[in-house]
Design a protein around this nucleic acid. Structure first.
Length: 280
DNA sequence: GACGCTTTTCCTGTTT
DNA sequence: GAAACAGGAAAAGCGT
C-alpha cells in the first residue's frame, strides 16, 4: 500500500546545492545504532553489493550530510541495487539528479575505489560477511543474522515533520494472494515467533527509527522504514492498516496523540519517552 | 494454567 | 468512490 508517492520529502530547503561541496571526506557521522534494525548498513560494504534499500540509505545520507532538499534527488530514479548503481554513467547521474547527480557520481566513485567499507572506517564494527554460492548472498547472510527477511520489493516511509510529529509517507506490504495470506495470518506455532511484546514496543520502534537517523535539523526521512516493523516481527502480512490500528491504541495511553485534520500524521504524547533531543 | 499486557487481525462506520 | 481514520471485538504471543 502506497500512501503517498515516493520521492517526496518535506525538509529544510536551507542548503545551496551549487555552492556546497560534499563533506564525505570529513568522515561519516556515527550512526550510533547498536544492534541496528537495519542489518548491514550501506557504509559497511562496497557499493557494488548494496541493496535497493542501501542505495536509498546512501542517498538519504548524502542529503543529510549536505543539507540538501530531498527534491534534489528523484528517489524513484534510484530504485535500483548497488550493482546497477555502479554501472551508471556520469551522464545518467546528471540526467537523473542534475548537479546533485554529479556529486553523487563523484562520491560513488570514491566509495567504489577507496574502500570506505568495513573495519577501516568502523573499527568497532565486527561485520561478518558470509560467502555463499549465490551472487546476492552476501547481504542476505547479514540480514538473516538480524532475523529479517529482506525483501527489496517493499518500501515504507516514516517522516518526522518536526520534533514531535511523525508522518507515514508510504507503507507497503508484500503483495499476496488470498491463499498466501491465510498461511501468513495463522502460521504454525512452532515456526516463528510472531511478535514479542516484551521486546521492542511498536512506539519505541518508531521512535528509534526516527532517532537513529543521522542528526539533522531538518528531520526528514523518506524510504527509511522499509516495512521494518513487519520484518522485525517476521510478519510479512503486516499492513499499514494493522500498524495504524496498533498505533491508535497508543492514544488511550497517551503515548501518541491525535493530530486533527492531518492524515498520516502522528504525534508523540506525554507518555512517550526518549524521543526528545535532550532526553536520554 | 491463569492472568495481564501488547500486538495482530478483522470488522463496521465515519471522515476527508 | 477511494483512502484514511476511529474504535470495538476477539485472538495470539509473551512474560510472570
Amino acid at each position: 500500500m502506497i500512501l503517498e508517492g515516493t520521492g517526496r520529502m518535506s525538509i529544510n530547503a536551507s542548503s545551496n546545492l551549487l555552492h556546497q561541496q560534499p563533506s564525505w571526506t570529513d568522515g561519516y557521522p556515527t550512526c550510533n545504532v547498536p544492534g541496528s534494525f537495519y542489518g548491514t548498513q550501506w557504509h559497511e560494504i562496497y557499493p557494488q553489493y548494496w541493496t535497493k534499500y542501501q542505495v536509498w540509505e546512501w542517498l538519504q545520507h548524502f542529503l543529510d550530510t549536505n543539507q540538501l532538499d530531498a527534491n534534489c534527488i528523484p528517489f524513484q530514479d534510484f530504485d535500483i541495487d548497488g550493482e546497477h548503481l555502479c554501472s551508471m554513467t556520469l551522464h545518467e547521474f546528471t540526467h537523473a539528479a542534475g548537479t546533485a547527480g554529479q556529486l553523487l557520481y563523484s562520491n560513488l566513485q570514491h566509495l567504489k575505489w577507496n574502500g570506505q567499507c568495513g573495519s577501516e572506517m568502523y573499527p568497532s564494527h565486527n561485520i561478518v560477511v558470509k560467502t555463499e554460492q549465490t551472487g546476492d548472498s552476501v547481504l542476505m547472510a547479514s540480514w538473516k543474522e538480524e532475523n529479517y527477511l529482506y525483501d527489496s520489493g517493499c518500501g515504507s516511509t516514516v517522516e518526522l515533520l518536526d520534533t514531535k510529529f511523525i508522518r507515514i509517507i508510504s507503507f507497503s506490504s508484500s503483495a499476496e494472494s488470498s491463499d498466501e495470506k491465510k498461511t501468513h495470518d495463522h502460521p504454525p506455532k512452532s515456526h516463528t515467533k510472531k511478535h514479542n511484546p516484551r521486546g521492542t514496543h511498536l512506539w519505541e520502534f518508531i521512535r528509534d527509527i526516527l532517532l537513529n537517523s543521522e542528526k539533522n535539523p531538518g528531520f526528514k526521512w523518506e524510504r527509511r522504514s522499509e516495512g521494518l516493523w513487519g520484518k522485525k516481527k517476521n510478519n510479512s502480512s503486516m499492513t499499514y492498516e494493522k500498524l495504524s490500528r496498533a498505533m491508535r491504541y497508543y492514544y488511550k495511553r497517551e503515548i501518541l496523540e491525535r493530530v486533527d485534520g492531518r492524515r498520516l500524521v502522528y504525534k508523540f504524547g506525554k507518555n512517550a519517552r526518549g524521543w526528545r533531543e535532550n532526553e536520554n
